[in-house]
Design a protein around this nucleic acid. Structure first.
Lengths: 145, 145
DNA sequence: CCGTATGCTGCGAATGATTTTCGTTGTAGC
DNA sequence: GCTACAACGAAAATCATTCGCAGCATACGG
């Protein structure tokens, strides 16, 4: 197809046009997208990809440190560009996520020294608070007081 | 079966004996257990549970704030008692987790005010750093320099 | 210019964890 | 003993994700 064996664009990492298209779509989106949502979105545009290909590329982009990913309670994975640094409140009852405008790493603390990382090369992080959202609290008063 | 409609043990929350057994098994384990692992472990002991029942109970225990859960990259969910407060480094390539001896919440910072939570009732949190583990870095030099 | 090696692609089948369905069974209350 | 109710287990269903494979394009050597 249109994926050259080596990149025609020397300043853009070893990314093929498909991968750049994926990345662009993620950046345009104002929210995290699941693989399938992304696939659908691209299908509507002129960029056709097989579903498996979208999965393949997202995995590769993640390994390259360009895309971050987190797993929802329902099993779906959702993706966003790395530069976006969002975190979430997640309801253990209904599974919905709400944005959490705070980041434990950005605020400076947290001594992430090389000692702790032990050769591990960090790309991104996830921070999530799990609990009961307001509406689920009302729905199930949680008998134990 | 042996699950009474209301608990015979007044000091132990509305937990049936099965749920207490699950919780006990999780506490005895020195690591997070997947549903299936827990099910297997209980099958070997005198406590027999159907797999579906283990899933049911773990979900309920999680909602009750007694058990925490996180999803591994391979889709499995792993559970641990709430009082355990571990976090992890996760390799985006091989998917393995390594323990991360640091907690962004415990260290005090992080203004988790009611304002931010907006009625959300926190039960536990997860903090994960995703990246490349030492061995995967060596295996794939990651062409882009 | 031709043949081969390599890498990417899409489709459809396979995988595997989790959830649902549904008939059964124990417990409580009467 | 009998009824209502909630929990149970086994098997079937669900659903996101991955695998297998044949096709096609490009890169390279001759």
């Amino acid at each position: 197809m249109d994926q050259p064996a080596h990149p025609p664009d020397p300043d853009a990492l070893p990314l093929g046009p498909r991968q750049r298209a994926l990345l662009a779509a993620l950046r345009e989106a104002n929210a995290e997208l699941s693989c399938q949502a992304l696939h659908e979105r691209l299908s509507q545009s002129s960029q056709r990809h097989g579903l498996a290909t979208v999965y393949r590329h997202l995995r590769r982009l993640q390994r390259s440190g360009l895309v971050r990913c987190r797993k929802l309670p329902n099993g779906e994975s959702v993706y966003a560009p790395l530069e976006r640094d969002d975190h979430h409140l997640i309801c253990v009852s209904c599974g919905r996520s709400e944005p959490l405008p705070i980041c434990p790493v950005g605020t400076g603390g947290l001594g992430l020294t090389q000692v702790l990382l032990q050769g591990f090369k960090p790309l991104f992080h996830t921070f999530e608070i799990h609990g009961l959202c307001r509406s689920c609290q009302q729905r199930e008063p949680l008998a134990h007081g």
